[in-house]
């Protein structure tokens, strides 16, 4: 590495909280907001859409086709296009990432519901569950593991993709990369990479923990 640890730590200390918008702390917060908001929004959108697709199978093909097309769009031109509508704001980054998340989560919700064994569904019907209650207390809980693994993918990829927004001035920690792209081993780049990876690991860890707490019946299966 070109810069020794003292320089790195010095740089961090100097830039951690300068009070300016581009202090490491503020970039980190921006990064969190811009990556986690799409995770939340895409989940909220994917649940009803996934339910609708599972209920009316005919919707599923066109919906997932459309979502895959959106997923295939390169993010940079999409940002450029959105700038004309939402300007150089965080919204410009959040909107496409929300769609990317939906592209993963809608199939996850559909697959999750499909993972409910037919005999379990039949048993619920036979015991006198109303359709709404069956969905809420039987089918969705059983779909949770599949949806959560989709959510892990979305969280990690969203955290990583936010950096691209740096090209339009809204990249969170990605902003650190644009400062010195001639030399990739400068402190800002190292700090940026380490923080993005750490953020992804923490988000993933939180979701794994949530999975264990929410679905003890899945975890217990492993050692048995």
């Amino acid at each position: 590495m070109g810069s020794g640890p003292p320089t790195l730590w010095e740089w961090i200390a100097r830039n951690w909280d300068t009070g300016r918008a581009d202090s490491i702390r503020n970039l980190l917060l921006d990064h969190l907001v811009m990556s986690l908001t799409p995770v939340l929004f895409s989940l909220l959108a994917a649940l009803p859409l996934g339910l609708a697709c599972a209920r009316w199978r005919r919707l599923y093909q066109p919906t997932s086709g459309l979502m895959n097309v959106i997923y295939a769009l390169p993010s940079l031109p999409v940002f450029m296009l959105l700038i004309s509508v939402t300007g150089l704001s965080q919204t410009t980054v959040i909107i496409p990432l929300t769609f990317y998340g939906m592209a993963v989560l809608i199939p996850a919700v559909v697959d999750g519901l499909a993972s409910v064994p037919d005999h379990v569904r039949q048993a619920a019907v036979a015991m006198g569950f109303t359709p709404a209650r069956r969905l809420l207390t039987v089918e969705l809980p059983i779909a949770v593991p599949v949806v959560l693994s989709g959510l892990r993918v979305v969280a990690v990829s969203s955290i990583s993709l936010v950096s691209v927004g740096a090209l339009i001035g809204q990249g969170g920690l990605g902003g650190l990369f644009t400062r010195a792209y001639q030399n990739p081993f400068t402190p800002p780049v190292i700090v940026g990479i380490v923080l993005v990876v750490a953020l992804a690991l923490v988000a993933d860890g939180v979701l794994v923990l949530a999975q264990r707490l929410l679905t003890p019946w899945v975890r217990a299966r492993r050692p048995a």
């Binding site: 005999h119 379990v120 039949q122």
Partner: peptide
């Protein structure tokens, strides 16, 4: 029923 149809999450 044959497969018992128990709720796996309960």
């Amino acid at each position: 029923i044959q497969q018992a149809g128990l709720f796996p999450h309960r």
